[in-house]
Nucleic acid binder design. Structure first.
Length: 271
DNA sequence: ATGGGCACCTGGCTGC
DNA sequence: TGCAGCCAGGTGCCCA
């Protein structure tokens, strides 16, 4: 489910209710996530003061005075702040109860997400230490992409979805960014010129930035921290539009499979 | 080092 | 109505 804009939207949504609060209690109903919720999380987190809520790639980092809760929403996860007495629904796996009486609730039907506890600098954790740059921060541009692509024969679409190259480009926005840049998704990364890499870097930052502005993309059941859907869906040019006319040139959008993921592109606009 | 494929899991939709 | 089959927003890990 969540791509970077959804995670950023969640981060901004939950932060005001969390920062400065103390955790009074942690309830784990089901530890079976991608990795089991660590035994002892309840004890370690209870009593902690939350000092910051950040995002790195698609990880949410909830810093406390004793350690950092590292959360990933996987394909179907959500984190919401709820008032006391909010009814439990299916797949509500973990509650983090705050001294305000409200609670941060982790729900994840497919259980591809995770909740980990890290003491010390989370940036040193194996999951985070090898990540590429943030696409919306300085250090990410066409020259960077072009340098990283030298000698890489992998197709450009899986290349930009590789978190060691650049973080946060998921399946939807990879197709959308390549459409904006006019690049065929099957092109070998090393064969994309410097100029076209510059267009691609701008397209990646642009598409992600715009999606964040409108609260992400709602496909099926995603809701943000307030339980509201995102509105980027109306702005998609190719994703899930197989057979429909290109919004720019009317040619039918094509769907192919790359690395077991669906890719969408316009055969006329993207060369 | 690189690239390709698999695995984890549930639910919604389609078509018989 | 029931059920099998297919598909889905992510990403770590294994193997060649």
């Amino acid at each position: 489910m969540p791509e970077l804009p959804e995670v950023e939207t969640t981060c901004r949504g939950i932060a005001p209710s969390l920062v400065g609060r103390r955790v009074t209690r942690v309830v784990v109903r089901d530890r079976r996530l991608r990795w089991p919720v660590p035994r002892g999380l309840e004890t370690k987190l209870a009593g902690c003061r939350i000092t910051a809520v950040r995002r790195r790639a698609k990880y949410l980092l909830i810093d406390t005075d004793a350690g950092t809760l590292v959360a990933h929403l996987g394909m179907s996860g959500s984190l919401r702040v709820l008032g006391p007495g909010a009814p439990l629904v299916a797949h509500d796996h973990v509650d983090i109860v705050l001294d305000s009486g409200r609670c941060l609730r982790f729900n994840d039907p497919r259980r591809f997400g995770c909740l980990l506890w890290v003491e010390g600098d989370p940036g040193q954790h194996a999951l985070l230490s090898r990540l590429g740059p943030e696409p919306l921060e300085p250090g990410f541009d066409g020259d960077y992409l072009w340098r990283r692509a030298r000698g890489r024969r992998v197709a450009i679409k899986p290349f930009i979805m590789n978190a060691q190259v650049v973080v946060g480009v998921g399946n939807i926005y990879a197709s959308e960014a390549l459409f904006r840049a006019g690049i065929r998704p099957s092109t070998a990364a090393c064969r994309v010129s410097r100029e076209r890499m510059q267009a691609l870097a701008r397209a990646i930052s642009g598409v992600l930035g715009e999606a964040i502005e409108v609260g992400g993309t709602t496909l099926r059941d995603y809701v943000n921290a307030d339980g509201l859907p995102g509105y980027f869906r109306q702005r998609l040019f190719v994703y899930e539009r197989a057979g429909e006319p290109c919004r720019r040139c009317r040619a039918p959008i094509r769907q192919v499979v790359q690395g077991q993921r669906s890719t969408y592109f316009c055969p006329r606009c993207q060369k």
